[in-house]
Amino acid sequence: PYTVPLLERHGVRLDSVRRTASRDGRALDLSPKEFSVLQILLEADGAPVSAEELLERAWDAHADPFTGAVRVCLSKLRAKLGEPPLIRTVQGVGYAL
């Protein structure tokens, strides 16, 4: 039987086919970018992902790496995920879930 690719960690469920995400059963209203970033972090399974890699994978090729787009997106994503915080900044490396 066909199974829907679900990622689940720390109470966050992400359905990459339906493009829905929830935390502890509460639906998250994510923008397409926030969804992509969350998916990349979940797939990394706790390993840190650099801002460059997030930019490369979640934005198009013309994104300016110095705009702070990743930081802004992550702060919005953190706010939507709520408490306790799930995404941590790994100094000099990137971000991890």
Score class of each variant (00 low, 15 high):
73 C>A: 13
57 R>Y: 02
17 V>E: 10
39 Q>A: 10
80 K>M: 06
82 G>P: 02
31 S>V: 09
17 V>R: 08
6 L>P: 09
63 A>D: 05
63 A>N: 04
68 G>L: 06
42 L>G: 06
17 V>S: 07
95 Y>D: 02
77 L>F: 11
12 V>T: 12
29 D>V: 13
43 E>N: 03
50 S>P: 08
42 L>I: 07
76 K>S: 10
22 S>W: 05
73 C>F: 05
78 R>L: 04
26 R>M: 14
11 G>R: 05
49 V>I: 12
24 D>F: 07
95 Y>A: 00
18 R>D: 00
9 R>P: 10
27 A>W: 03
35 F>P: 01
35 F>N: 00
63 A>F: 04
40 I>F: 09
79 A>T: 14
10 H>I: 15
2 Y>S: 12
92 G>K: 10
44 A>Q: 00
60 D>H: 12
59 W>F: 11
48 P>F: 04
66 F>D: 14
64 D>S: 08
92 G>L: 11
77 L>S: 11
3 T>S: 15
16 S>C: 15
30 L>E: 15
34 E>A: 04
90 V>F: 05
68 G>W: 07
54 L>C: 01
26 R>G: 14
30 L>A: 11
41 L>T: 04
46 G>C: 09
51 A>G: 11
2 Y>E: 15
95 Y>N: 01
44 A>H: 01
2 Y>P: 14
25 G>V: 04
61 A>N: 09
73 C>K: 09
82 G>I: 02
38 L>T: 01
31 S>H: 09
23 R>I: 03
35 F>I: 00
90 V>R: 07
88 R>G: 02
83 E>R: 14
91 Q>H: 08
52 E>M: 12
12 V>Y: 13
11 G>Y: 03
38 L>H: 01
1 P>V: 07
6 L>N: 10
18 R>H: 00
42 L>P: 06
55 L>C: 11
9 R>M: 15
64 D>C: 05
14 L>A: 07
35 F>K: 00
82 G>K: 01
35 F>E: 00
51 A>V: 08
36 S>Q: 15
97 L>S: 08
52 E>K: 12
48 P>V: 03
55 L>M: 13
54 L>K: 00
46 G>F: 09
23 R>C: 02
94 G>H: 03
72 V>N: 07
36 S>G: 15
19 R>K: 15
6 L>E: 14
97 L>N: 08
71 R>F: 01
81 L>H: 04
60 D>Y: 11
35 F>V: 00
31 S>E: 14
45 D>N: 07
